[in-house]
């Protein structure tokens, strides 16, 4: 138990780093946003893990006497999920506009077009 007592945090951090890798390594803007989404959900998982009480139940009142898991991280993350989807929608709208303006969603190609325009100017 002591060695593996924090496995949920570890998995959350591993998944978080996978998302981070997608964000910084991949050039495709859509894939970057999916990576950002993975990163975000991993952070949610970290918070929810810290709210878990062993042998506890969901924080809904009932007649039994099992302890409740901590409801406060749940409230925080509920808000964060909804705000997350709003920012994702905004990000996707920006990607669609970039595609219209540059004809590509690859970071390298956008950079090349920018450089060419600067040279021409």
């Amino acid at each position: 138990m002591d060695v593996l007592g924090k496995y949920s945090y570890w998995v959350a951090i591993i998944v978080m780093m996978i998302g981070f890798y997608v964000v910084i390594d991949r050039g495709n803007l859509l894939k970057k946003l999916v990576g950002l989404n993975i990163f975000q959900t991993a952070v949610f998982m970290l918070y929810i893990s810290s709210g878990k009480v062993a042998g506890g139940t969901a924080p809904i009142l009932y007649d039994g006497d099992a302890p409740f898991s901590n409801p406060l991280p749940h409230v925080l993350i509920l808000t964060a999920i909804v705000v997350g989807v709003a920012t994702l929608a905004l990000g996707l709208a920006l990607v669609v506009r970039i595609k219209e303006a540059y004809g590509t969603v690859e970071e390298d190609e956008i950079q090349a077009i920018e450089n060419r325009e600067e040279d021409a100017a």
Binding site: N37, G51, P59, I81
Partner: peptide
Amino acid sequence: SVFLVLDAVDVAFTEAAVG
């Protein structure tokens, strides 16, 4: 599903619907 196992039922169904 992970959220459900961790007792966060409200978060689980929001994630399933929104995510």
